[in-house]
Structures are given as C-alpha cells and as structure tokens.
Simulated scan of single mutants.
Amino acid sequence: MKLHAVLAALALASGLTAAAAAAPPPDLALSAADRAALSAAFERAGRTPPGPEASDAQVWEATERLAQAELGLRLRPADLDPLWAQAPAARSPQREMASAYASGGLAAWAANLSPEAEVYAALARARLRYAAIVDSGGWPDLPSDLRLRLGRAGPGVLALRQRLAAEDAGPPRPDQPEVFDRPLKQSLVAWQARNGLQADGVLGPATLARLNVPAATRLAQVEANLERWRWLPRTLPADRLEIDTGGAEGALYREGRRVRTFR
C-alpha cells in the first residue's frame, strides 16, 4: 500500500480518534499497578505515557485512544487499497477495557495491545527516538552542493558530523572536527547501509538527498509502517516468505525461524 495514502489517512484519523474516547467508568480508581501497566503499554507502542499528574480519567481516555491505534482500528485498509487483503479483527476497546477493569485484569489486557513481533518493537523504539528529534527541532539541511570524502576538510565536515549525531550517536568528536577522518567515514558507511544506499563512505548526491529528508517525514514513515504492522495477523504463519519491498530483500521462514535471506 502506497505510503502517501497511509500517511494522509492517518493524519485524518488522528483528529477523529482524539474525540472518540467514551466516558470512563463512574467508579474508576486505578491502582498503582494498573497505572504502571498502562504506562508500559504506551512505551511498548512508542508513545509517551501520561505523566503522574494525569488524573485516572485522563489516563483512561488516553489508553482508550492508544488501544484504538494499537489494534489497527483507526483505518480500514480496504478503503485505502482494495488489493490490501489484510485487516485487523473487529474489536471494541471501550468494552474490552471496561470488562478488564471490572474483572481486575486491566494490566493483562494492556500487555497484549501491541503486536509482539520484534520488528514492531524496533519500530516503536524508533518512533520514540524520532518524535524526540522532531520535538527538539529536527535536523538542519546540509548544503545542496556539499560533496565529501575521506581526507576532505572544511565547515561542511562539521555539518555532516552534526547531522549524523542528530540521528545516531555519531563518531567521537576528534581534535580536528572539520577533517573527514576514518571514524567519520565508518559512521557514514553504517548510516548508508541502514538506509539502503551504497555504503562507500562518500557524501554524494544520493546520500545527501537521503540525509536531507526532514525528521518529521522520517517520523511519519515510521508511523505508517507501524500502522501496516497493526493490520497483519498477530500470529504469523510459521512457514512464510517475507519481502521487504523498500529494501529489495526477502527472507524465508521455516517453523518460525529465518533460514535464508536474499536480494
């Protein structure tokens, strides 16, 4: 399903979902254990949990909106792409939450909101990281004519160091930060490899264009891919073929174990 369609629908759904929470139970009194379990559910989803100053009612309403998102219920995949065959099961977060609270099982219910796949967990952690970057102002664009390789020197090298450090730890700051040294090349090679680029440690047009993608766009891409994961079955077939269309890679699974990868 095309990224722009998912992003546009998510932008609309986020506004609609904010007003969709039902009133909390009239006898609501969350225990410390309940609040801790709900906070953990937010963190697993890559979201910042309500703070300790939030009332029980505010925590309840925020959790209900979280459940709507984590269960993949904000969008109907077929409305975006009739060829998309996967869709989440129909569920009612409001009824589920109320039932779990009444039976003392709110913590167990919250623990199973998000998909368990490690790929999803990694995306959720990335979402938290990119959200923090966006909140801090993102990263500045590098000059469009900047070209760098090992041994070059100048203010552009320092700008590249700062750009890599904004997204990752980056290489240690050397005595001569304006010199393109080997640690900086290794850091750029690692970044290129993660982003599906030729990992040559040279700042050329393709790498520059990818580095200049705004942090907000990166966050939106992570959000869209999290949404796609929510539409998949919670338990994937043990024998399956997974294709990463963006990275042009495939993986064959047998009995739940990856036995082969290929381009």
Rank of each mutant, 00 (worst) to 15 (best):
L28T: 03
G196V: 10
V6Y: 01
P174V: 11
A9V: 10
R44A: 13
A215C: 01
G72F: 00
L28S: 02
A87G: 01
W231L: 00
A78V: 14
A32I: 05
R234K: 13
N112V: 11
A117H: 12
R65A: 14
L12K: 13
A36C: 01
A8R: 15
S14V: 05
D239R: 11
V59S: 06
A90V: 03
R234S: 01
P24W: 00
A54C: 12
A153Q: 12
R163S: 09
Y253F: 15
G196N: 11
A13H: 05
W60P: 00
R35W: 06
A98D: 10
K185T: 15
L184N: 03
A121F: 07
P115S: 05
S136L: 04
R127G: 11
Y130F: 13
E61T: 15
F262S: 03
A220G: 13
T17C: 11
P26T: 11
L16S: 12
T17Q: 12
P52H: 01
A40W: 03
A199W: 04
L146C: 06
A78P: 04
E223Q: 13
A8L: 12
A11L: 09
G156M: 07
Q68N: 10
Q176A: 14
A166H: 09
D181E: 14
G104H: 06
V119L: 10
R218Y: 01
T17H: 08
